[in-house]
Simulated assay, not measured.
Amino acid sequence: MGGHSSRTAPDLPLPHQEVVSLQGSGGRVQDRPAGYLAAANTAARLAQKCETGQVKVQLAWLPHSFQLQKGPSRHLWEIHGTFTAEGPCTLSAHFHCRERTSSSGVLRYEAADTSGPPSWSASYPAGKHELRLAGDKAIDFQRWPLEVFWKLKHKRMDVIPVVFVLDMPGVQSIVHISLEVSKEAALNLQLKLLRQKVVIDQKEYLLEEIYGLADLAKEDGAHDESSHGEPCVVCLSDPRTTAILPCRHLCLCEECARELSIGAQLRGDTCPICRGKIQHVQVFELKS
């Protein structure tokens, strides 16, 4: 008497409920289609937020400058590219290789086997320079066949066909490249930029262009309704702060992106710019 039982009451199963109407703005109840709550929960899980700011990189590849050109012989091909450096740096080229991270956080590349093309390096002063794989550095398909050394293979995704690395103290700027056969290309062979990344103070960053992200850092006004930046393409009022992935179009405000992401779950809504599939949305907040 006055005590309590040590036995725990069994959990009671709760009935499954699905909300089909939610409280909207202004106190009105807005009808929602069946499945809306589940779609909203899924959209919330897929949403990502990212604080963005400006970081100055002292070494930079110009990704659109890379070109593949026919060499003087039928089996020789040349790669051309451009980079900029704010100080003296070292450029190294590695082929048919694997990536490793050293104990100091620096990325290193080692040959996948002894039969591949040899690595090489060269020093450059500050300025804008052109990389040229030509002459004795040209790609030689007769000595190193295309299918074996220069194409990325799904069964050996860790073996990178071509890597270019720019090095200076505390900074690395890296590009991974492969060669692909294309029926649409005029020369039936094209260069494919697999990825671009930088290592700054032992932290690795994968670089992906977000179309419109640079506008967030404009100094001509704050990003509110009076912002000089482009408005959301859906509501045409709030500023664009949210990108659609994987197409990377930054074209929506956060609220419209949330509704469009829910619509992607319910109706298969797509990116309003390219009509691509919506897998995730990412909100960018400019670091002041």
Rank of each mutant, 00 (worst) to 15 (best):
W61Q: 05
D215T: 06
C235V: 03
A111N: 05
T101M: 04
S73W: 11
A214W: 05
R240M: 09
E208T: 07
R100H: 11
K192L: 13
V175Y: 13
L59Q: 00
P239Q: 09
G2Q: 08
M157G: 07
T101I: 07
H64V: 12
L133F: 09
H154F: 08
T101Y: 06
S288V: 13
L166F: 02
L236K: 07
L59E: 01
L46R: 12
P118F: 03
A264N: 00
D113P: 03
K183G: 15
A222V: 09
A39M: 06
F149V: 01
H154V: 09
Q265D: 09
I177P: 02
S173R: 05
E219T: 14
G116M: 04
D140S: 04
Q190G: 06
E259P: 03
T52A: 15
D11I: 08
S123A: 07
H249Q: 13
E110I: 08
E130F: 01
L266V: 03
H280K: 15
T52Y: 15
L68W: 10
I278A: 09
P63L: 08
R258P: 04
H154Q: 11
S237D: 12
G263F: 06
G268C: 08
K49R: 13
A44W: 14
G27C: 13
Y124N: 00
K49H: 15
V19T: 13
H75N: 09
L252I: 08
W120I: 00
V148W: 01
L166S: 04
P33N: 04
G268A: 04
I79R: 01
L216W: 05
